[in-house]
Design a protein around this nucleic acid. Structure first.
Length: 782
DNA sequence: CAGTGAGCGAGCTTCCGCTTGACTT
């Protein structure tokens, strides 16, 4: 019989702890929550004081019965779930479901997985904190009420299968509002003035910028004109020491941000890779909001720094979490063993590990020291000055290991180089002055990672939900991650050189974006709807204010059902009212005008499958009445901005554009964008062409291109096995075998020369690696 | 990642937060 049963949340953690505790302890994992509200029902009994109806999900039944029998057999059960609200609730559910008894059940907590921490926890057990559990129930019930009362309203008023929630709806709001700011943004121009001087030695160049920008061309002309006869001399040299400190160790959110900036990983990619590192025992837990390092980690970091860089580079630092609502059940994300400089694994895993290791080490290193030199050049007939700033690193400190990245150019600190040695009052000769027209920048669109950062700042969402939330708002098609073409802008450059002023216009592309989050029509309509009826829930401070109540519950100062009741009494009547409003028109519907052909009204709205134009009304009761006509909006069109003319044009599709080889060519828009159908085959119309304006010649060219590509698609077939083929895909050659695809190693230069045996070797080797065998088949529709 | 290609009157959708697995005979 087992003496002790310890239950933790994660199986990887269970494995580690079992080693520390010895053979008198069996350690099992609950795999997170073991009980929850029903998935398909409201499951809250409003009439009976918001009593939640918990069930054990089907995929947890087997686990729960195993836990139950192990618990029954054990002399002592130790509930060791995380030391936060959710963890406390997990322990409580375990206690209830497993039928544990108070006399042989103990609750223990530790927030670092070290032998000392665990042994200490075993020595200092406590009871389940029911106040904390109730705070979790309040959180759970509130989220269910908000989600399950708001979503059905959207199904009725906007589109089926939509969703709303405390977290996702605010995430969408951030993106919608940012896009509006961008649309309303008016950039302002000003001239940046840069002068190149030659020092008295006759060769060295000093580059300096005018201390202020000039408003317009007239001002620039006047300024340059007066510079013709001016003399320039150095009137001030200042040197100032500057210090820079390292960033704290990673939390989930900062790891996601840095992995996106430095390695280009998406938020979910980062989490998957980190999960593998965690399961291999290489890093600590990857879902955390804490920047705290264990004493063990602090000690080994110190050793590593002293050994590799020397004492001068070491500085003991303790970080404190600043983010709102942090619960700090875990440590910061760090290598399990700092001394592990190299790991085995995929290239991605290695890169992420290296990032985590460097960040951890740097966080315990000395400040970098810089010397900032400012040289100011005065103009004898003006009070403005030219200024040159240079920076020299006098001691690199943590910079030797790690440098934090920035999201966009605005945030990036200017890279100041080294300045040439100069003397005070030295007279300089002017080479040229270049005035470049610069524009203020619009606010940046969110990336996945910058959205996570914003949500964290607002205290909305948790480390375990950042990645799923971003997935959800994209699945619902509230936002899309995509690219935006920039627009060409003309700016002028005015140069003074050799006493002559010259002006040229130059062109630049601005506002182009890659992989940024942008709202869709659906997202915008849903957001506007929720904002007008439920501004309190969409308020950026809603989560923060309910968290305050949950804190009061956790402290025992408030009964959780009263907190919920307070909210429900305000919230539910609005839900009822909103649902009761009979609307003839869908939310977001907009009439564009009248169809000149039929005289029927033309309007745009969110249809069952997304944004559409509709001509004429439906007459559900009259079967004889003419049916309305529909047309889907094209990519880039929006129900907010589309005009009547543009909308009517969409009805020209499908459009016969001519004949080729005796068969009609028809242009239309399908599920995956514009295409041409010809002789039963489909050819996509590229982004820079329009199905409404494409000519027969262009279409024939596309068809021929497609045929050529299809021919080249089959690189090689094998007689040994017809299911094995080498194909040419969008991303180069690949092997396909039994409906699965396999990458050809980069070392192979002539894929078409691969033999049957070589191909099968690639296939079987890939199949052995667990990651490659899995093929995600994402089903959108039921 | 590796090729798809409507429809707008018929049937169930949805929340947030913990955690990973992968039918059973």
């Amino acid at each position: 019989m087992q003496k002790n049963l310890v239950i933790v949340e994660s199986p990887a953690k269970a494995k580690t702890i079992e080693k520390f505790l010895g053979k008198d302890f069996k350690v099992m994992s609950s795999y997170g929550h073991i009980r929850d509200l029903k998935t398909k029902e409201f499951s809250i009994d409003i009439e009976h004081n918001y009593a939640p109806q918990y069930v054990i999900p089907a995929d947890k039944k087997k686990l729960v019965s195993e836990l139950k029998s192990e618990a029954k057999a054990a002399e002592q059960v130790w509930l060791a779930s995380d030391e936060d609200r959710e963890g406390e609730a997990i322990s409580w559910h375990l206690y209830e479901v497993l039928g544990l008894k108070p006399e042989n059940t103990k609750r223990i907590v530790f927030h670092e997985i070290t032998k000392n921490a665990i042994l200490h926890a075993i020595e200092t057990p406590r009871d389940i904190n029911i106040d904390l559990v109730n705070a979790q129930q309040a959180r759970r019930v509130l989220d269910r009420i908000v989600g399950f009362e708001l979503s059905p309203i959207l199904w009725r008023k906007v589109k089926p299968a939509l969703s709303a929630g405390r977290v996702q709806s605010v995430a969408v709001r951030l993106i919608v509002e940012r896009e509006r700011e961008i649309n309303e943004f008016v950039s302002e121009a000003a001239y940046r003035i840069i002068a190149n001087f030659t020092l008295p030695d006759g060769t060295t160049i000093l580059k300096a910028e005018l201390s202020k920008r000039l408003k317009d061309k007239k001002e620039v002309m006047e300024f340059l004109e007066s510079c013709k006869s001016a003399s320039f001399s150095i009137d001030e040299i200042t040197k100032k020491p500057v210090k820079k400190s390292p960033a704290p160790p990673f939390t989930t959110s900062t790891l996601q941000q840095e992995a996106a900036r430095k390695l280009g990983y998406s938020v979910s990619q980062t989490m998957m890779i980190a999960q593998r590192l965690y399961e291999s025992g290489l890093i600590t837990y990857m879902r955390t909001d804490s920047v705290n390092l264990s004493d063990l980690a602090l000690g080994t970091s110190k050793e590593a720094i002293l050994e590799t860089y020397g004492e001068k580079y070491y500085k003991f630092r303790q970080y404190h979490t600043k983010s709102k609502g942090a619960q700090e059940a875990h440590e910061a994300i760090r290598p399990t063993y700092i001394s592990n400089t190299e790991i085995s694994g995929s290239a991605q895993e290695k890169k992420l590990y290296e990032l985590i290791r460097k960040r951890t080490i740097a966080s315990q290193m000395a400040d970098a020291e810089l010397e900032r030199t400012t040289i100011s050049v005065c103009i004898n007939n003006k009070k403005e000055k030219f200024v040159a700033v240079g920076e020299v690193i006098t001691f690199d400190g943590f910079l030797q290991v790690y440098r934090e990245s920035y999201d966009d150019e605005n945030e990036k600190e200017q890279e100041n180089g080294l300045l040439p040695p100069v003397e005070l009052h030295e007279v300089l000769s002017l080479n040229d002055i270049v005035a470049t027209e610069r524009f203020t920048q619009r606010p940046p669109r969110y990336t996945e990672a910058s959205l996570v950062r914003r949500l964290e700042e607002l205290g909305i969402g948790r480390p375990s939900t950042y990645a799923p939330t971003i997935q959800t708002i994209q699945n619902r098609e509230y936002v899309i991650k995509g690219d935006k073409d920039g627009v060409e802008r003309v700016y002028s450059v005015i140069t003074l050189a050799k006493d002559k002023i010259k002006e040229v216009d130059k062109k630049e592309i601005v506002g182009a974006d890659r992989n940024k989050l942008m709202p869709t029509d659906i997202g915008t309509v849903v957001n506007d709807f929720l904002m007008s009826y439920f501004p309190d829930v969409l308020d950026y401070n809603f989560t923060a204010s309910v968290e305050k109540e949950f804190d009061a519950v956790a402290e025992g100062d408030m009964v959780w059902t009263e907190a919920i009741d307070k909210f429900y009494k305000l919230f539910h009547p609005i839900v009822e009212e909103t649902a009761a409003v009979k609307t003839e028109h869908k939310v977001g519907e907009r009439q564009l005008g009248v169809d000149p052909k039929s005289g029927n009204p033309v309007f745009v709205k969110i249809g069952r499958y997304g944004p559409v134009v509709q001509i004429g009304q439906a007459h559900p009761d009259d079967k004889e009445a003419p049916k309305p006509q529909f047309a889907t909006l094209m990519k880039g069109q929006s129900i907010e901005t589309i005009t009547l003319e543009e909308a009517l044009k969409l009805f020209d599709l499908p459009r016969t554009i001519g004949e080729y080889e005796g068969k009609d060519m028809v242009a239309a828009i399908g599920r995956f964008g514009p295409f041409i159908r010809h002789d039963g085959k489909f050819v996509s119309i590229p982004k820079d062409m329009n199905p409404l304006s494409i000519t027969a010649e262009e279409a024939i060219e596309l068809i021929d291109e497609k045929r050529k590509k299809d021919e080249q698609r089959f690189l090689k077939k094998f007689e040994e096995d017809p299911e094995l083929e080498i194909l040419n895909g969008r991303y180069g050659p690949y092997i396909t075998y039994k409906k699965a695809n396999y990458r050809i190693p980069k070392t192979v230069t002539n894929p078409e020369k691969l033999t049957y045996e070589e191909c099968m070797k690639i296939v079987t080797e890939a199949a052995e690696k667990p990651a490659a065998t899995k093929k995600r088949t994402t089903k959108k529709k039921a």
